[in-house]
Design a protein around this nucleic acid. Structure first.
Lengths: 211, 211
DNA sequence: CACGATCATGAACAGCGTTCAAGTGCGTTT
DNA sequence: AAACGCACTTGAACGCTGTTCATGATCGTG
């Protein structure tokens, strides 16, 4: 290295790696969206991005990291689909907001089926922790649920509210997931929305009654 | 073939295949229970069962069929864990029964973690339909939910009750699944039970109030 | 212009589920 | 009882996977 700056050396190289990363992410997004996570092949990605097979491993440590990047973008896409955080709920519209969030989740899962499924189909190897962005994105989404919850149940502590928000999401997620998955269950697609509405409203009613 | 019975020929052969099937199922059950579905290898199974690698494909069409057999036994194991169908619920104990079923589901998932996860981790290839036993077992389990539901909401039609039972199961499943899965969420294990209790009771209350 | 570190390349590797030519053993027939 | 023929068992081989690494091209630098 010539200059005093240790980072000066791989300037162009890093720029090209970043460009390749974008190409690979775009290719992986397309493959996952069209054919599902299970159909993702390293050789296809290399062909799509116009790079050598081994070049993938110069841009990402492994395919898992690439998938993680796609999943992170999927989460961001969903947050964008939720629109800006309205805030300010009271006991009269809290249940409606919970229903709205649930229906938005269902709509996103339906319109981005393969991509949304990849979020949960993908397993972290061993005990690998999810990256920071993942956890941060989750927290932002859960806060969307906590807001109307606070209006519905002002008596709950912050910690209780956090836990309940996660549980509410889990219940919603279960209905959406098994509703769209033909493996077990097979709820007719047309009834998933009404059922989700019914159960979220029931939970809101039951929670509000201090059961 | 000598006799008039066309089935007389492969009698001993079929018996040995059946014996090998049992050995392979037992081996697969152990591997899945201990190391998870993802660690299941055809070569390990052959070694465990003391047979050749190719012999597996004389007993099962492919590994998927073997996994399906293990999953079917897991479902039966869960049904046995539920105990005999009590029947006869009224509006006073219907919610309690729903909670009991949910907690039993959670307990089973917790004590048979890897095996239970295999139920949902396993994907049917292409558009392969689940075998008859699968669907029948599902129906039996869902009827366990429909019974207290009928007590809770006698006004619902049979079809509405069927759909609602599946939705209730889905919601419960979501809480259990994401509660035990460190991927997304990460609810502390100790709070999953109380949260499940809380939400099932809320749903029962909300449903009973004809919301 | 020439040198040297650095990076891209794709053939090679390890491991997977599955298959199949070849050998073995069992049931049947004489 | 003996020998034949066919079905079954066998494990090496196939095709495919993600990942690696010697080799050759490339680019920045003295």
């Amino acid at each position: 290295m010539t200059g005093a700056d240790a980072n000066a050396k791989p300037l162009k190289a890093e720029a090209r790696r970043a460009a390749l990363r974008k190409l690979l992410i775009a290719a992986a997004e397309r493959r996952i969206s069209e054919d599902g996570l299970g159909a993702l092949r390293a050789r296809d990605l290399a062909a799509d991005a116009g790079c050598a097979l081994g070049a993938i491993y110069g841009a990402f440590p492994d395919l898992d990291a690439l998938i993680l990047e796609v999943n992170l973008r999927t989460l961001a896409l969903f947050e964008a689909a939720l629109g800006p955080d309205g805030g300010g709920f009271d006991v009269t519209n809290a249940a409606d907001e919970l229903v709205r969030l649930g229906q938005a989740y269902l709509a996103f899962a339906q319109s981005h089926g393969k991509r949304w499924r990849a979020l949960f189909q993908h397993q972290f190897a061993d005990g690998r922790r999810p990256p920071d962005g993942y956890v941060a994105e989750q927290a932002r989404l859960f806060r969307r649920i906590e807001a109307p919850l606070q209006a519905l149940r002002p008596d709950l502590s912050a910690q209780e509210r956090v836990l309940l928000a996660r549980s509410l999401f889990s219940a919603t997620h279960g209905i959406v997931m098994l509703g769209l998955d033909a493996r077990l269950m097979a709820l007719p697609p047309a009834v998933v929305g009404p059922q989700l509405d019914l159960l979220i409203r029931a939970m809101a009613t039951g929670l509000a009654s201090r059961a």
